[in-house]
């Protein structure tokens, strides 16, 4: 079976032009393939480039060099060469990303934030809101919060909105940045349940899981970040 995500020789560094032109090499050579139904946990201490790799896979950071092949329907696209419009299209339909922090949009209610990616894929308003409500219920977000903008929510509540949004659409590829970081026991179990379901459906996941228990439970294998440094 062909991988959904195929990373070859990916390197990424940051040049800080206004701080003496210092260049920080973060990733030197990432080779990683992820197949349908696989969950790869990025493993390494903080500062080893886990978040940088995840953000690069989402097109949030530019690929320095190397290839980053993404299966998109019947096609394969190298994210390193993709145009902004192509990346937007990939994010709409192929790659989902649950970041650690919710980027709050003024005045937009939690329910609409969760429904938005479904609406963007053409799902009717009613069906999208229905599924959004089901996800929020499953993640124990109290109904009284659904129609409020999440700016004032707690960290854990915001994170669950973010998770609901990320799981609202059946993306073939899902990137998870510490999805259980600020969650307690029951909510952690709900998130593990969601991860299990999408893996069973054939989603390919790349994630950062600091919580060892969660990692043990969901990861098919680990990718050791020290490999990313070995050039």
């Amino acid at each position: 079976m062909e991988p959904l995500l195929d990373i070859r020789g990916l390197a990424k560094s940051f040049t800080l032009h206004n701080q003496g032109g210092v260049t920080l090499p973060v990733l030197a050579a990432v080779d990683l393939s992820v197949r349908a139904g696989e969950c790869v946990a990025l493993h390494g201490r903080s500062g080893t480039g886990k978040s940088t790799l995840l953000r690069t896979l989402y097109g949030n950071y530019r690929v320095g060099s190397g290839e980053l092949w993404v299966r998109h329907g019947a096609a394969r696209i190298d994210l390193a060469q993709a145009s902004p419009r192509q990346i937007i299209e990939l994010r709409r339909s192929t790659i989902g990303y649950v970041s650690q922090f919710l980027r709050v949009i003024p005045r937009v209610a939690a329910l609409d934030i969760v429904a938005e990616p479904m609406r963007a894929r053409g799902l009717g308003a009613e069906a999208a809101l229905e599924r959004a409500a089901a996800l929020l219920t499953r993640l124990n977000v109290p109904e009284r919060l659904w129609h409020l903008a999440p700016a004032t929510f707690s960290g854990g509540e915001q994170q669950r909105i973010n998770i609901a949004r990320g799981f609202a659409v059946e993306y073939p590829i899902l990137l998870l940045d510490e999805p259980t970081a600020s969650l307690d026991g029951d909510n952690r179990t709900s998130v593990i349940g969601l991860i299990d379901e999408v893996l069973a459906r054939g989603t390919a996941i790349v994630g950062i899981f600091h919580d060892g228990e969660v990692r043990e439970r969901v990861a098919s294998r680990l990718y050791d970040m020290t490999e990313a440094k070995a050039a």
Partner: peptide
Amino acid sequence: SGLTDQVLDDPQHPYTQL
């Protein structure tokens, strides 16, 4: 020029970084 979040989160040009 480029994708909005890429330009803002991974700016390449010295002026954009500033």
